[in-house]
Design a protein around this nucleic acid. Structure first.
Lengths: 252, 252
DNA sequence: AGGCAGCGTTGACCTGGATCAAAGCGCCGA
DNA sequence: TCGGCGCTTTGATCCAGGTCAACGCTGCCT
């Protein structure tokens, strides 16, 4: 079992220093300001955020929280990859999303999490007490609006995923998945081509509503038809992006 | 083809009269204040909303907007049922949700709708110009917060639906669907038992990621095993709610 | 009244992906 | 260095749900 290593975000003095630079993100090492809940805010707002956050680190496989737990914390991923999932009583699992640096997690409708969150790779996050963040939101409507925009984006992504799960075949699902990862890499400022795929076949399967065997076979098919190449280290090179896009759209 | 019948919401005088009663909802006949974007607001806020809204009516089958259209309007359903869907180029369709009175639609990330909206039954809506509503949101953070809460709810529903589409079998999907309709009826103040199912088999199929034939057969199975009874007028009586719940959870 | 178009149901058959099984292939710890 | 465990791949077989087809019902339109 892995454990979470919590620690308060630096000493107060160092915090103040951080915030003195207006373009510093209080979420520590978060390299993706444009996606973070913390981005596009005023220095004053950042300072207030910094006051209530705690930086933490989780190892691969660590469960951050489980469906049904009391939802008193919100998180922002600052490095690594997390997965969110829901389970059926018999163990069937659906991964509802993979979270990259800048992504936010922990929103809940009532007072319990509606899904579980687990680290795909070792990851760092910053953690906000729900109550205190909500209080800040009241004070700074701009933060509220930013959070709303993020939720809207997630909703749009969820709808794409419903189309995928309800109507696409295995090849189309894998193609869509690879393009999604590629696009997200670009948005995070990395090059889009050898796509880094940090998750296991089993995670991919549970995200796409398939089995590991089908995921594996489909990767092999795409490799055989030279649309992609499987590189070492969990990297996938896209040889024929247009072909992959046509597949993903169901146009092929 | 059906057409939308737009008309300004009453005369200014009548509007003022409406708003004078603080617990009147500016969205005309909307009977479900607790779910509406308009609910739980101050008289002042309601008055401002009433100023910018237009009530409208759409007939069964009418397309309110299509995926890719410029998203300059937001809507709130006041009566009837709407469906949201996405299409693949070859015509495969995924319905991402059914909207009942009080539900909000038209949120978009960039400036175009990410899905199409069509009337399942004839329906009435109130329509807000996006720009003007956004301006109001700036002014009234409480409205913003309310909208955020609604988006969070939709997100949770979308995650449930992903679990359904990715991991449940046909019987479990139909069971989940019936219980969902039943619960929503309760929340809207109707009795939960003979559930009203206003949508066609084809709509149900495209919502659940099945075919009409499978939907029909599964209804028949549930009827045969006396879990439900199919009544006339698109009503379904739930005879064994616990049994249905076990099915929906995949516990049976 | 008749005809016809769309929906729902049912039957027969087919197939994509699940399931079951077994073999490679790191990677880590002793 | 070796052994073993977990992940991935590949093969063989199965089956839930898709596809194709036919028919009944209902409600329009003429």
């Amino acid at each position: 079992m892995t454990t979470a290593l919590d620690h308060k975000a630096g000493a107060p003095a160092s915090l103040a220093a951080q915030v003195a630079q207006a373009d510093m993100n209080p979420c520590g090492a978060c390299p993706v300001r444009s996606l973070s809940v913390c981005s596009a805010l005023e220095a004053e707002e950042l300072r207030r955020l910094a006051e209530i956050l705690t930086n933490m680190k989780v190892d691969t496989g660590h469960t951050l929280f489980s469906e049904g737990d009391g939802a008193d914390m919100l998180f922002n991923v600052t490095s690594g990859t997390m997965k969110l999932y829901k389970l059926l009583p018999d163990g069937r699992r659906q991964i509802t999303g993979f979270l990259l640096p800048g992504d936010f997690l922990g929103l809940s409708v009532n007072d319990t999490y509606a899904y579980s969150a687990e680290a795909v790779t070792s990851a760092t996050l910053c953690r906000f007490p729900r109550r205190r963040l909500e209080a800040l939101l009241e004070e700074y409507p701009k933060m509220q609006r930013r959070l709303f925009a993020m939720a809207s984006n997630e909703l749009a992504a969820a709808q794409d995923q419903m189309l995928l799960l309800g109507r696409k075949n295995a090849k189309e699902r894998i193609a869509s998945f690879l393009l999604l990862l590629s696009q997200r890499a670009v948005r995070r400022g990395f090059k889009d081509n050898p796509v880094h795929v940090p998750m296991s076949r089993s995670d991919i399967a549970d995200y796409l509503g398939l089995t590991t065997e089908t995921v594996s076979r489909t990767f092999t098919q795409l490799k055989t038809s030279n649309v992609i190449a499987l590189l070492e280290g969990g990297k996938v090179r896209i040889n024929d992006r247009d072909g992959l896009q046509d597949l993903a759209d169901g146009a092929a």
